Simulated assay, not measured.
Amino acid sequence: MKTKSIITGLLISGSLALTSCASSHYGTLQSSANLSSNNFNYSANSITGTSTATYIFGIGGMKRQSLVDEAKQDMLAKNPLQKGQALANTTVNIKNSMMFGIVQEVMCTITADVVTFN
């Protein structure tokens, strides 16, 4: 009887632990350079920058606007633009992860191509 109670308790605890975690993803595609004429070359493809904020009981981290800006600054710090270059095909992806309804982690990733105009 005692073993049955322990197994039942472990199953219930395990089920609660697994069902209280969630993750969602969403993103947008933004135009950042006019590529309508054939006066450019791709210099780099899929450069990225990331930023993360962690919230405990909804407190902490940064506002979402700051997350996007920080991810962009990270991308440009790793891949500085030269004269005549611009970002193209920019995407912003946000991933929200919730663990046990207590801790939320928000990760922002920005990906872009670099074009050089002739």
Rank of each mutant, 00 (worst) to 15 (best):
F100S: 14
G84Q: 04
K83E: 05
I94H: 13
C108I: 11
T91F: 00
A86G: 10
L87H: 00
F100D: 12
F100W: 13
I102E: 06
A88S: 06
I94A: 13
N93F: 10
V92D: 05
N93E: 14
Q85T: 00
M98H: 11
L76I: 03
M75Y: 02
M99N: 11
N79D: 06
Q85G: 02
K78M: 07
V103Y: 11
M75E: 01
V106F: 09
K95C: 02
N89G: 05
V103E: 13
K95I: 07
M107V: 15
N79A: 04
K78Y: 07
V103P: 09
E105Q: 06
N93C: 10
Q85W: 02
K95V: 09
K78C: 04
N79I: 04
V92L: 01
Q82G: 08
L81V: 03
A77D: 07
L87D: 02
L87S: 03
T91I: 08
T91W: 01
L81I: 00
T91A: 10
G84E: 05
V103H: 12
T90Q: 15
M98N: 15
L76R: 04
E105S: 09
G101C: 09
T91L: 08
G84D: 07
I102A: 08
M98L: 15
A86R: 12
S97F: 13
A86V: 04
I102V: 15
M99T: 09
G101D: 10
M99V: 12
T90A: 13
K78D: 13
M107R: 15
N79Y: 11
G84N: 12
N89Q: 05
L81M: 03
L87R: 03
V103Q: 12
L81G: 00
M99H: 11
N93R: 07
K95H: 00
M75C: 02
Q85E: 14
A86F: 07
A77K: 11
Q82S: 13
N79V: 05
L76W: 02
A77I: 05
L87Q: 00
P80Y: 01
N96V: 12
N79T: 06
N96Q: 08
N96F: 06
V92Y: 03
L87T: 00
K95N: 07
A86H: 06
M107F: 09
N79H: 11
T90L: 15
N89V: 06
P80N: 01
K78S: 14
S97C: 13
L76Y: 01
